[in-house]
């Protein structure tokens, strides 16, 4: 690919200076963005280790909870379980704030989850079984892990988006903008030098013409002087 130069730039010294400034800025921005990208990727790997454990944790807890639920349904019947579920009080309070990783705001879920006794849950005892208590307890635990998992996964998705955007910017600067600036600066430099050489030659020509004219004038004057004598 031939090196492209920027459109609409006049080959003047002013433009050259301005372009040099722009190139400097681009190079600086490029190195900053590169650092940002590296930091984000590091952050991404750190959190990747967490997500693996979190997902496994959540899924094992959840499948245990499903088993307990099935047992409760077997002993009590589907409808009784549903009825009991309707009267359960809300157990989880989540406060979501956000923190910033290299300018990406990611959520932090702050959970308040009191471990509840059977009495706190809010369903009656007369028509419920111990399996139901077990299921409720397991779902509470699973819910905690699931919310943690959600926080981590959301963080990862947000980080990925930012990493991709940053990568794109780094690449565009590195492979398109900076070479284009350099090519333009080079071409302006060459044009300016060419103009200088042209000027130099023109001066020489003019000087030689002037000298020639002067010499002729001098010769004529001498001739005249000689004739009048």
């Amino acid at each position: 690919m031939a090196e492209e130069i920027l459109d609409g730039i006049n080959p003047t010294r002013m433009e050259l200076l301005a372009l040099k400034d722009r190139e400097k800025l681009a190079v600086k921005g490029h190195s900053l963005l590169k650092q940002k990208r590296d930091a984000l990727i590091k952050e991404f790997f750190d959190i990747l280790d967490r997500v693996k454990g979190a997902r496994e944790n959540a899924e094992t807890n959840l499948s245990e909870a499903y088993e307990a639920l099935t047992e409760a349904q077997i002993t009590m019947g589907d409808l009784a379980v549903q009825k009991a579920a309707l009267s359960v009080k809300e157990s989880v309070k989540v406060d979501i704030s956000s923190r910033s990783i290299m300018g990406v705001s990611v959520p932090i879920a702050d959970m308040e989850m009191e471990s509840r006794t059977i009495v706190d849950r809010g369903y009656g005892f007369s028509d419920t079984s111990i399996q139901l208590d077990e299921a409720a307890k397991k779902f509470e635990t699973a819910l905690k892990y699931i919310i943690e998992l959600g926080e981590i996964e959301k963080t990862i998705y947000l980080l990925v988006d930012e990493i991709e955007a940053t990568k794109r910017r780094v690449n565009s600067l590195e492979h398109i903008m900076i070479p284009r600036f350099q090519a333009t600066i080079k071409s302006i430099n060459m044009k300016l030098e060419e103009m200088e050489r042209e000027n130099f030659v023109r001066m020489k020509m003019i000087r030689s013409t002037i000298e020639k004219n002067e010499a002729e004038a001098l010769a004529k004057a001498q001739l005249k002087a000689a004739q009048s004598e």
Binding site: L69, A136, L143
Partner: peptide, 23 residues
């Protein structure tokens, strides 16, 4: 304070309601 909600089949929803998800 924020809320938690669950979308799912009947068993999943029942389970999570037992676990204390209101919606």
């Amino acid at each position: 304070m924020s809320d938690v909600a669950i979308i799912g089949d009947i068993d999943t929803v029942t389970g999570f309601k037992l676990g204390g998800v209101k919606k």
